[in-house]
Design a protein around this nucleic acid. Structure first.
Lengths: 231, 231
DNA sequence: GTCTATACCCCGATAGAC
DNA sequence: GTCTATCGGGGTATAGAC
């Protein structure tokens, strides 16, 4: 009995994975807005109504793909962080390069999570933990670095201080308020660099992409007080 | 005869404008990937085949919307630049704020030009001049500022110098090579900030959006050597 | 330049048999 | 859990009359 259920559960897991794989393939060809359960079923040799046993609606399939993408990216970033050599500056750059590397390998999944929202689709709260992973990693790097109080701190205008203190309380404990707004800005700017490269805005503008990116994210690191060569 | 032709031409211009207006409305509801000539025609009380006299295909309509969006944004930015008070730093911030303002007012047109590319659509070369306007404006601000040779210059690693010199030659004449890569990075990062705000990544993260943005683009300006209060 | 009609496709979702 | 069949939509694009 338990083996029969095991086999059944295994089959279900495998079919679910096959559906998501095929859906990812279609993401590349058609984009998230046109992701179609029928087309996925057709390609898998199933009939469309059978898919509804795995995903109750198109939006649920989309949600699964989004969570998978955030987790895949987060895992890559965390892995890079774990194996990075050097101090906070070097770890920061390594994580940023890992994010870019993942994005270049999975452009359509990147577009799914950081590109234009899919019209008519609203991501449920279940996506939040996966979505937060890269941000939390960068926060952690900044927090660790600023345990040493001799690091330079960005300037913080008075009208932003309450906002910065709210951020510290909400999601960045133990990060100095002068750092947290710069950190959030750097986080958004990182995705500006990646998006421009991925979506073609750098065509005929930036050729040496890797060196350019390394320099740019190094400057972002300096903006949050990090510098090369600090243990 | 010329008045008849004039009237005919005028009618054509008006219908063309009505088609684009309705298409822009649908961009908001359905997204660019699902822009549909039939739906536009239906809403205008026309029959779909009539639209083909104005736009030979769906992609041509899309191209027209893209060029219009770039021009609308470019015009807003140039206008802001023309009326900005103060030195290069203040002009930079004003232009960035104008870009953000336009984006907040036209989120779906922003998504059309700076969001995920529409699958299966490739923008023709005719879009390039309109697309370049904001970038050229920022280049101009940096060039004017660096006419004074006492401005601080970003560091430029050796492996990026040839790339920087190519950029200067290709699209940023008279801008110091040390400045141009930082400038291009700042340009991309500006759109990272705007995209994150527009596409919801700042929800529950950044609340004081205007003050946050002003501070962030001020830091971008410093990154290209500009500082407040320099004539 | 607009109309009708048409060819030939696509979709999400559900009902009910097996 | 998969199937057939179905409801009720949607689309691009063209032909040919007016």
């Amino acid at each position: 009995m338990s083996t029969a259920q095991g086999a059944r559960a295994r089959a279900r897991t495998e079919v679910t994975a096959a559906i998501k794989d095929e859906a990812r393939r279609q993401l590349a060809a058609e984009g998230a807005a046109r992701l179609s359960l029928r087309a996925v079923a057709r390609e898998l040799g199933m009939v469309s109504s059978a898919l509804y046993r795995y995903f109750p609606s198109r939006d649920d399939l989309l949600t699964a793909l989004i969570v998978d993408a955030y987790d895949s990216l987060g895992e890559r970033a965390e892995e890079a962080h774990g194996t990075a050599a050097g101090g906070p500056f070097e770890r920061w750059v390594t994580v940023c390069e890992a994010v870019r590397g993942w994005a270049l390998e999975h452009p359509h999944e990147y577009a799914l999570i950081y590109g234009t929202p899919v019209p008519g689709y609203t991501a449920p709260a279940t996506t939040v933990p996966a979505a937060a992973r890269v941000g939390l990693l960068l926060i952690g790097i900044a927090r660790d670095a600023h345990r040493k109080p001799d690091l330079p701190r960005p300037s913080l205008p008075d009208d932003l201080r309450p906002e910065a203190e709210r951020m510290v309380a909400d999601f960045a404990p133990d990060v100095p308020p002068e750092v947290v707004t710069a950190l959030v800005a750097a986080w958004a700017q990182l995705y500006g660099l990646i998006g421009f490269e991925l979506f073609g805005q750098f065509n005929r503008v930036v050729e040496e992409r890797e060196a350019f990116f390394r320099q740019a994210v190094g400057q972002l690191a300096r903006g949050v007080g990090l510098a090369p060569g600090h243990a």
